[in-house]
């Protein structure tokens, strides 16, 4: 049922405002509460918006922030038919959910591609490989997928320690949100976001560097 496209409902929502799609609202609510199944169900509904977000994020990494991620997501939010509650906080929370969804789509995609190539399993990459990837890129490399999966692995462990820091990473790294945007999305002060982001990066960097051999690790569900 997650595959159903919500196009007719969305169009209706744009044309005559509310009523809100109760299914989406329920999913958003559950996702906000940390229900990852709800995020998975939201992904097909969010897909077009995520694609647009991906485009804007590319621009951001190029150093050219011609598109505004926040504006984009607000628009997505409106399209997702939650107009009835124009509370900024709902919109901000929606952004955090979208960033989580973004991470999930990327990871699922990398995992599927990898499964096709070598039967799936744990990321088969070391810190050195990622460093090499960053130094020089081979057009046919699989390291990007591996790097993503390894990062995801470590991020799960970070979430065990600090769910908030993990969400900051989702917003900043996977969603491409700025510090003020992340602060709004997670309802945490900008100063805390800044420090969380710094500490999360330092911790993940350490973790990635001390990864044991890939064969000893199990994929995180």
């Amino acid at each position: 049922m997650a595959q159903q496209r919500a196009a007719p409902k969305r169009r209706r929502a744009l044309d005559d405002g509310p009523p809100v799609d109760p299914k989406i609202q329920k999913l958003l609510h559950a996702a906000r509460g940390g229900d990852s199944d709800a995020v998975s169900e939201l992904i097909p509904l969010l897909y077009d918006e995520l694609r647009a977000l991906a485009r804007s994020q590319r621009a951001r990494w190029h150093g050219d922030v011609s598109l505004n991620t926040t504006a984009l997501l607000h628009e997505a939010y409106v399209k997702m038919a939650v107009q009835e509650s124009p509370d900024w906080r709902d919109r901000s929370h929606f952004m955090a959910v979208a960033c989580t969804a973004m991470r999930q789509v990327l990871i699922d995609h990398a995992r599927r591609r990898q499964a096709k190539k070598r039967g799936g399993g744990a990321p088969n990459v070391t810190f050195d490989d990622i460093e090499k990837l960053l130094a020089a890129s081979d057009p046919r490399t699989d390291t990007e997928d591996d790097a993503l999966l390894l990062l995801d692995d470590c991020l799960h462990r970070l979430a065990d320690r600090s769910p908030r820091q993990a969400r900051v990473v989702e917003c900043r790294f996977f969603g491409g949100l700025t510090i003020p945007e992340t602060s709004e999305a997670l309802d945490v002060s900008p100063a805390t976001v800044k420090r969380d982001w710094a500490m999360a990066q330092a911790w993940l960097h350490q973790e990635i560097q001390v990864q044991p051999e890939a064969s000893n690790r199990r994929p995180t569900a």
Binding site: R140, E144, D145
Partner: peptide, 9 residues
């Protein structure tokens, strides 16, 4: 070359 984000979407 390839990049994960673009390819995914």
């Amino acid at each position: 070359a390839s990049n994960a984000l673009h390819e995914t979407f």
